[in-house]
Write a protein that binds this DNA or RNA. Structure first.
Length: 304
DNA sequence: TTCCAGGGGTAGA
DNA sequence: TCTACCCATGGA
């Protein structure tokens, strides 16, 4: 079964996948040779399927193995449109970027979309797993959560979907600590239980009508989510007026704007202040190394 | 061994 | 609002 979805132009499948590190986190699997992005997905009716995404002429192709009902097709299409932000309109950012040599390439490369997960719960947990840890550790913890709590694919139980909030909610802190989550364990558990009990309505965070300031307050109110994580989630939610300042941001701004001098959050924000509602996009897609490559390619090209 | 990572929560000022 | 301190774990 194949589903083809059109995207608001410009759209570039590869550059969307490589927009940030999410494609390296389970249950995403990236085939860099074939440019296929796969993931096991638990559909809204509870069925677990394997999805394979690739670029199509004017958008995205989704391949699902086996038969799916019309309702499941619609569910998959909805989720795919969200994950790849197919409807995102970045024209205002591109217009502003024309005046900056370090960002002028963004329109042609269709930079600006950030790959997302199919649910806000998954993205909130994943951002939480990026805090105070190295990227290799983030990948390890997310994989551990998927392997331990995710629903398996029927014809290949070694591949699993991202765990539901309900599944994690029914576990214990000790089980999460055993996976290596450390002090993040109680935060994940509180989040999952809050979602299950209706204390946190994460799906509502997708509502474009929700003012950014109110949304940011709700994000920071979540367990384990502080300023960095909230701002990162805001960027994922297509709101770009706050920069998720982490050690990477500080390092990049220090190296490229302050001649290697030590800087803090204030300097990071000041560097991109002129970009107003597009601060986070300007920071994230800035052509730091002059190669016009995606942020992840620039990240991987750096000496470790 | 020591330091610190794509920080957050809490207490105290 | 700002600062000091603690938090688990693994990599460098």
């Amino acid at each position: 079964m194949n589903i083809t979805l059109s995207a608001r132009p410009p759209f570039n499948f590869y550059n969307t996948v490589r927009s940030h590190g999410w494609y390296q986190l389970a249950p995403y699997e990236w085939d860099d040779g074939k440019h296929f992005l796969s993931r096991v997905e638990r559909l809204s009716d509870g069925r677990v399927v394997l999805l394979r995404f690739s670029g199509a002429s004017d958008g995205l192709a989704v391949e699902v193995r086996g038969r799916v009902t019309k309702a499941e097709q619609a569910d998959i299409a909805d989720k795919a449109r969200w994950m790849f932000a197919l409807d995102a309109d970045l024209s205002a950012f591109y217009d502003q970027a024309e005046r900056e040599p370090r960002l002028r390439h963004c329109r042609e490369q269709a930079y600006g979309r950030l790959l997302r997960s199919s649910s806000m719960f998954e993205d909130v947990v994943k951002v939480m797993m990026t805090t105070n840890i190295q990227w290799s550790g983030t990948k390890r913890l997310v994989k551990a959560l998927v392997d331990h709590f995710g629903e398996p694919l029927a014809d290949d139980p070694s591949r699993r979907a991202f765990p539901t909030a309900d599944k994690i909610a029914r576990s214990r802190e000790a089980a999460l600590r055993k996976l290596g989550l450390g002090y993040r364990a109680p935060y994940v558990l509180k989040l999952a239980r809050g979602v299950t009990q209706g204390v946190y309505d994460l799906a509502a965070f997708k509502d474009p009508a929700l003012p950014t300031d109110a949304l940011r307050k709700r994000l920071i109110a979540l367990p384990g989510i502080g300023p960095y994580a909230a701002n990162t989630l805001l960027m994922i939610l297509e709101r770009y007026d706050h920069i998720g300042v982490d050690t990477e941001a500080v390092s990049a701004v220090s190296t490229h704007f302050y001649d290697g001098q030590p800087v803090g959050e204030k300097e990071v924000n000041a560097t991109f202040a002129a970009w107003g509602q597009f601060k986070a996009l300007a920071y994230w897609f800035w052509d730091y190394d002059g190669t016009h490559q995606t942020p992840m390619a620039q990240y991987e090209a750096r000496p470790s």
